[in-house]
Structures are given as C-alpha cells and as structure tokens.
Design a protein around this nucleic acid. Structure first.
Lengths: 355, 355
DNA sequence: TTGAAAGCGGTACCAC
DNA sequence: GTGGTACCGCTTTCAA
C-alpha cells in the first residue's frame, strides 16, 4: 500500500455535546432523552435528539457514564481456563444472564494460580465492576487467601459484590456446588450396580473441589461398608492430561482387582479412557469409568460416560443472579443452590456388574 | 440472618485525590507517580505517594482513566457460542494475549444471529474498545452486512480497530483461515487412503465457512476426478446436534455405498458418530468419518477422529496482534496468517481402505 | 520538578 | 419540562 495515501479522516466519536448542539437543545435535555430514567422530556425535543443521535452515530461513552454515575455496568468473571468445557459452560451462563440485564462481562484467566488470581482481582477492581465472579475452586491452606479476602472485602466495602462459585471458606456470597453429595450419590449408585472395588483419579489434595468430591465418594462408599485403599487414590492434575497421565501410572503400577475408577471430573475421565485404550484396555469392559460434571461431550465418547450432572450454564446464571439480587437473603441463596443440584447419570461406561 | 444487623460501613473507593492528600502532594504529582509516562517525580514524593496508595488500597479507576485519556484498554470479543470448543479455544488465545498486554477483554455471544451481532457491535462500541474482534463466520448475502460495515467503519474512523477472524468480504483487517485449502488437503489425503465415495455433513449454505470448506473439499476431490453426489451433501446445523441429526437423516435416507463422511467441523463429527452408533453402525469401520478444527477432545473419542488442525488458541492471539500491530502492513498480516495454517491429521476414524 | 486548573464525556441537582 | 452548572476521577497542559 502506498504510504500517505488518501485516508479517511480520522475523527473522534460523537459526544452528547455534539448531539445536543445538532438537536438545538441543552446537554441536560439530550442526556435525558437518550438515557434519562423517568421520561419527562417534551416529545418533540425527544425526537429531535434521537434523530440527531442517529444522524451522528452517537453511542454513549460507557466509561464516562460510569464515572458520572459512580457505578458501572460491568461484571468481571475469573475462570481457571476458558478452554476447559467446565469453565466455558459456566462462562456461557454468565454471559447469557449478563446480556439479559445489559451488563458487560469482562473475563480473565487465573491459570489455576492463586498468586495470579490475586493480581487479577486487584486489576479487575480498577474496572469498578458491579459484580466479580470467581469460579475456580479454592485451594485449601492457600497463603494468599488472607490477601484475597482483604482485597475482596475492600471491593465489597466500596459497593461491589463478590461471588464464589463453589465453597470458599471466605466470607462472601457463594453458590455452593453439590460436589460432596453428588460424589456420595455416585458412589451409592455404583455400588447398586454391583461395583465393590473402587479406585479414584484425584486432583491436588489442596484443591477444595478435589477434597469435597473425594470425601463425598468415600462417604458414599462408607455407607455401604466399603473403603478405597490408599494405593488406589491416584493423585494427578485436574485436567485432561492429568487424567491421562494418572491412569497411565495407575495401570503401570497395577490395577489389581479394581472394578471401577472414579475420575474427579469429566475431562480427566476422558483422558483416563484414552490412556486405557493406549494400554490395550477397553473402558467399560476391562475397567469401568465414571466422571463428574457431565460436560456436553461425555455423550459422544465411547462408551458414553457415567457422570454427575452439574447444570453448568445455569450455575453461571445463578452466580450472577446471586450477586445482583440485593435482598440476597438466605432464601434467594437457597433457591439458587437448589436450582443447581446434581444428578447421577448412569451410562455405558459403568455397566451393571454381572453377579 | 438478622435484618439491620451490624454492617461494615460502606464507603467509596479511594480516589487519586485521597491518595494525594494522604501523601501531602498535589493531584498531578500523585497521578505522575502512580501512572505517569516518563518518570520525572522526586523519589521521595514518589515513595510517599506509593505508600499512601498502598495504605488506602487505591486502585486507579479505569473508566476515569479512559475518559481522561480518551483511549481505553479494552478489547471486545464477539463469539457465536462460548460453550463451543472452537470459540472457547479462540477466546483463550485472545484472553491470553490480551493479558500479556494488560488489556481487558469483554465478551459477548452472537448466538449465530446476524441481527443480534449488529446490536452487540453497537453496544460494545459504547466501551470505546481499542479493538473489536469478530470471530463468528460471515453469512453470505447477509442483509445486515451493510449496516455492520457502516457501524464498524464508524468505529474505525473514531480510532478503533476491527478484526475479523475468517474471511468477511468486509473492508476490515482479517485473519484469514485456511478453510478452503485445509478441506482440499483433507480430500486429497482421504483419496490417498483409498477412499472413493464421499459424503459431507454441511452447515447452512449461507455460512461462509460452510461454503469454503465444501468448496475446498470439492476442489480436492475434483483434482483426483471425483465428485460428491448432491444427495450426499447433507445440510444441517453447524453444531453437535446438527451433526447428530444430519447423520441420522442421512442414515435413514440410505447411505448407499458411501465410504466416508466429512463433517464440516469436529463437534458435528462427534454428533454424527453418536448418531451412527445409535443406528448400530460403527464409525471408522462401517463408515469412516472426518472432521475439521481438531478441537482437543477429538483425541479422546473412539475412534480417534481424523481432522484438519486449526491452531485455535494461536488464531485468537494472532487476531489480537493483527489488530494491535499498527504498522499492520501486508507483511504482518501475511506473517500472522502463515502462523495459523492448517494441517491434516489422519487418525483411526479414517483407516486405510483395503484394496 | 511541581501544582493549579482546564478538560474528558456524562449525570443530576437546582433554579426558572 | 428545560437549561445551567457543579461535579465524577483522572490526565495533562501551562506557569511558576
């Protein structure tokens, strides 16, 4: 391209001022016609302003509005990894619900790093978001927790609303997820199918979600008098690759007489099934597999994966509702969490055990 | 919870003013110490300001900064459906790259609706984002195209940068995706494996991506003297359920002697494989299947899915780079698109055809 | 270097 | 109802 060639004149966006002048009314009137709360503007003026705005291609400057009004229309969302179906589904719920309320959602990734998360919270506060939703699981004994609490407390004290998806131990609104009871139910159902010898592919023990799901699963089994041997609790990363790697190691170390392995989330389960195949084992036949979350793709793997359904999109929606709902008394929180309860979905990866 | 219980006093965030007062310096000095471009502030003052800011928990108000500076640090991202792995991977790329540049990304979903997309572009302009990335495929003959072009032109004229991921016909920067050549390569490779009779599960014919992939596939086959019969081009939705439904219909209508079906994207392919199984057919054995995009989960389905790899995260990154790169001469665009080229990945879903 | 002050684009209170 | 105007929080000239 030729340099210095003809170039459309670069201008600046039309301002409310421009609109008012064009319409021949005052700034105040223009503001009222375009955004004003209760309409109390002469119809004729109103129309002139609207016409002027259209003609000029005026779009209100949200930043300016935020400054003037002292409140923004932003909701900040923190996820561990947006490419992970668990988080992208939650994000879809948040984005959808936010759109309904004409709120804008900004997003950042913690990469499962507590330090980074803290920095991000700090950075996002700069946007003065109305709501901040933190969706990664908490880390037990996280040294950053106190700093995070301080940061969020300051945030709330200045008018913001922090919401955790999944329990946090921190004193903020929380959308509790039925990790524990879901895992418990799963254990019982599996027992009902005839399974007696279990293993689990778990995440870092400091991850609260890991802890809750393992605990729930153990409880469920305990209720029928079964225990998972320690050497059948394989610790690995909470990701697909973690699932693959954990299963590979487990196979190498010897499955023993294990009948079914509970992978703490679906992506891990999917990785685990791949590892089995790579080792010449057929999931569902040589070893049953169950996951957790019920992400959409578990219907499309073979065998279809038994899982614990979490209504992820709805969880995203409810988290936002919980934050926005200002009479967020216990009742509303209860309603929200009831709405996101789990359900065990038995599929082919855990066939009934023949007697 | 008791109503009207003790409640921490709700205050407003510390302002630069507060910091300046606390540090005993002027507003200007405080501003310069905290953000100022070239440092030219007495070290002692600087420290006092920093200390005051820390003490007060000061975070600059991004909106106010945007208003005062006349430029924001926002990048707006439009996707069709964030829960779809294709888009969530691209989003991950954008979010990652934006984070490196300390940019904030805001996201909205078009739900594949051109009307809605137009509205969203309009709404997002209110944020005065530095960059706007539109990642859904274009619709051929979209009546909204002219309005969209007008809106984006106005946006660019006022300093913004619009970038399309995938060709658009609209006069804006574009990160071209190798849909056509990728599909062409796939066709040739499949032919090389011995396949001779093809079918395709395609999206709406008005969807540019559909068009390009179908055209490329047809070209590739044409180069080896093969043609896909019209009645083996099944039109369906560009989603997992579309793939399922299209395959179901195709099976009902009769597969004939079809050897392999090309699903225009991986999620469709996964749906299609499930439909086959539900109909008692084994993918890869009774009928080969190939997809496109190479989303992460295709490694974990059975049989592993042959696909055309698109470096989705990198695509997201490059789209942002392309927008930000101000000497975005042809060279940079070329470099970016070279970086996002495709590669056919043959897996078990398309076994070599025995002679 | 530092500080006073004039904006930036809007909102909303206060008279008229 | 309408317009004048004092802010909102921050940046950036411009003098001192």
């Amino acid at each position: 391209m030729a340099e210095g060639g003809p170039q459309t004149r670069r201008s600046t966006p039309a301002t409310l001022h421009d609109v008012a002048r064009e319409a021949g009314v005052s700034l105040a009137t223009a503001s009222r016609s375009l955004n004003g709360s209760v309409r109390k503007v002469n119809e004729e003026y109103r129309e002139r302003v609207l016409a002027a705005a259209a003609k000029l291609g005026y779009t209100p400057n949200l930043s300016a509005q935020a400054v003037a009004r002292g409140t923004s229309t932003t909701v900040a969302l923190l996820v561990a990894d947006i490419a992970d179906p668990y988080f992208s589904s939650i994000a879809a719920g948040v984005v959808g619900a936010a759109g309904d309320d004409r709120l804008i959602v900004t997003m950042a990734e913690t990469k499962r790093d507590a330090e980074r998360e803290l920095e991000l919270v700090r950075a996002m506060r700069g946007q003065r978001p109305r709501v901040m939703i933190l969706s990664g699981s908490r880390t037990i004994g996280d040294p950053n927790a106190v700093a995070l609490e301080a940061e969020l407390t300051a945030y709330e004290q200045t008018g913001g609303r922090a919401v955790f998806i999944s329990e946090s131990d921190l004193p903020f609104r929380t959308l509790p997820l039925a990790n524990r009871s879901g895992a418990r139910d799963l254990a019982v159902e599996l027992h009902g199918l005839g399974y007696r010898r279990f293993a689990a592919l778990t995440g870092p023990e400091t991850l609260r979600t890991t802890h809750d799901r393992v605990a729930g699963f153990a409880e469920g089994l305990a209720s029928v008098g079964i225990r998972v041997p320690d050497d059948r609790l394989v610790r690995t990363a909470f990701t697909r690759d973690g699932g693959y790697d954990g299963m590979r190691r487990f196979i190498e170390a010897g499955l023993g007489d294990t009948q079914v392995v509970f992978a703490l989330n679906d992506v891990m389960a999917m990785g685990a099934m791949s590892a089995m195949r790579d080792a010449g084992l057929e999931p569902g036949r040589d070893l049953a597999v169950a996951g957790f979350d019920d992400i959409p793709t578990v219907r499309d793997v073979t065998p279809r994966l038994t899982s614990v359904r979490m209504p992820l999109e709805r969880i995203g929606e409810q988290a936002l509702r919980l934050a926005l709902d200002d009479e967020a008394d216990a009742a509303s929180a209860r309603a929200a969490s009831a709405d996101v309860s789990t359900e065990v979905v038995i599929r082919e990866s855990t066939p009934r055990v023949e007697a």
